[in-house]
Amino acid sequence: MAPKAVVPAVVDCDPQTYEDKNVHAIYDEIASHFSSTRYKPWPIISAFMSSISTGWVGLDAGTGNGKYLRLPLERPSDIFTIGLDRSINLLRIARHAGQSVPMITREVVWGDVLGLGWRSGVFDYAISIATIHHLATHDRRIQAVKRLLESVSPRHGRILIYVWAIEQDELSKRAIPTRDGDGSEWTGKDVVVPWVLSRPAPSQEKGPGEVPVKKQVFNRYYHMFAKGELSGLVHDAAKDLGLHVGEQPETSSPTRGVDIVQDGWERSNYYVELRCWEIPE
């Protein structure tokens, strides 16, 4: 769902502190309301999860309410996805969501997408949906992509990343510049997006015949991605890790790389699908 309004934001302090206040604390507050609006997996994500081989294990970095942990719907026990998130209240929902459908495996871990909490390259796939856009600097967003690349198998690891785009469905009439003045560089946009939470008001405020409601507004930080910026992050992360970007070459000399299989825009989001490859020694 696209926001009704976005307001420019300035990251004015240590990025970790900024994210704690303008992302993590807010998700902990709005968790259950937020979760009730996020239940339908998007087609490209469902298709990606359906294409994962039986026996593979994966990481959902920034799992939120865990709606992707039960995919693929047609054969949920064939793969095992672990959900990682910074919001403990969202994880409480992720862990218990869908309990009416027994026998479905759900596993969640409280942690940071910038952390190194796993055996290196142990996952076969990783997804990070609507998460990296909450990181407050370009370097931290590169770091997040590096962590994804490090978490999956260098030989066959597959990755899907979704982030919020400047090019919005409903906001398409509002021209948000995607390039610097000289047109040589893409640049995203830092914004805050208000989330209005309605809570029952204390009883003494109740007027006659009214349903007492107290509205509270939380401004969540987002970095809205410009066209080309997400694949740019992949190039920067791959360079830092010594990976080639592109298809596996017809060569026998040992090398490692990552191929950008898909790079697109869908419903106000940019996404990339990546495939790791390795020519071993």
Binding site: S53, T54, G55, W56, S77, I79, F80, M103, I104, T105
Partner: peptide, 18 residues
Amino acid sequence: REAEFNPDFLKGFMPKIE
């Protein structure tokens, strides 16, 4: 907690186990 038994998943995951 009971979980669905899926031998194909287990066989696929085995090589990864420490």
